[in-house]
């Protein structure tokens, strides 16, 4: 049941990305190109998604626990640290070069563009390096 519902949730997310146009790096890069071929569509994607989530979360959190797992695990940190700033800044540079963030990179996989087939494995390597780095630091602390 978890597997099936996890799959359907991912499918819904992916179809949303495609309908929104966010699966197309050209559209993402044009959103970021205010002084060139600017396409403001992505602001509507983010707005529609954030408002829906804002309202939906408040309905869901009236329950004691989620339907399939034992508890809600919601990030509780509120501090702004160097990792957050450095990580977000680094991500933004990569997003501006490739036009892919992690979700659209996955939905692009079966379309098999050469750029995607290079981006996706290197993204996973980058994730692996950062994960190991963070775990080493935690182990040393």
């Amino acid at each position: 049941m978890r597997i099936l519902l996890g799959f359907l949730s991912g499918l819904l997310f992916g179809v949303g990305l495609i309908i929104a146009g966010m699966s197309d790096p050209a559209k993402v890069l044009n959103f970021l190109d205010v002084f060139g071929t600017f396409d403001p569509s992505l602001a509507f994607v983010m707005g529609g998604a954030a408002i829906t989530t804002f309202l939906g979360y408040r309905m869901v959190w009236r329950r004691e626990r989620p339907l399939l797992l034992a508890d809600f695990q919601i990030p509780s940190r509120r501090d702004i640290d160097g990792d957050l700033l450095l990580g977000a800044a680094t991500f933004g540079i990569g997003w501006g070069i490739g036009g892919f963030c992690p979700g659209p990179a996955w939905t692009a996989l079966p379309l098999a563009a050469p750029g995607t087939l290079v981006f996706l494995p290197t993204m996973l390597i980058g994730m692996g390096v950062a994960t190991i780095l963070k775990e080493r630091r935690t182990a040393l602390a």
Binding site: F13, S23, D24, P25, A26, L29, M46, P75, D83, L84, L85, L86, G87, A88, A89, T90, F91, G92, I93, G94, W95, I97, G98, G99, F100, C101, P102, G103, A105, A108, L111, A113, P114, G115, T116, V118, F119, L120, P121, T122, M123, L124, I125, G126, M127, G128, V129, A130, T131, L133, K134
Partner: peptide, 29 residues
């Protein structure tokens, strides 16, 4: 879709996106 064709740039972009999203604890979603 139109994916950038500069494969060296895409490799660098992938590394930065992967490293940055984990280091920064999140991405666009």
């Amino acid at each position: 879709q139109t994916v950038p064709t500069d494969l060296v740039a895409m490799a660098i972009a992938g590394l930065l996106v992967g490293f940055g999203t984990v280091m920064g604890s999140g991405c666009t979603s």
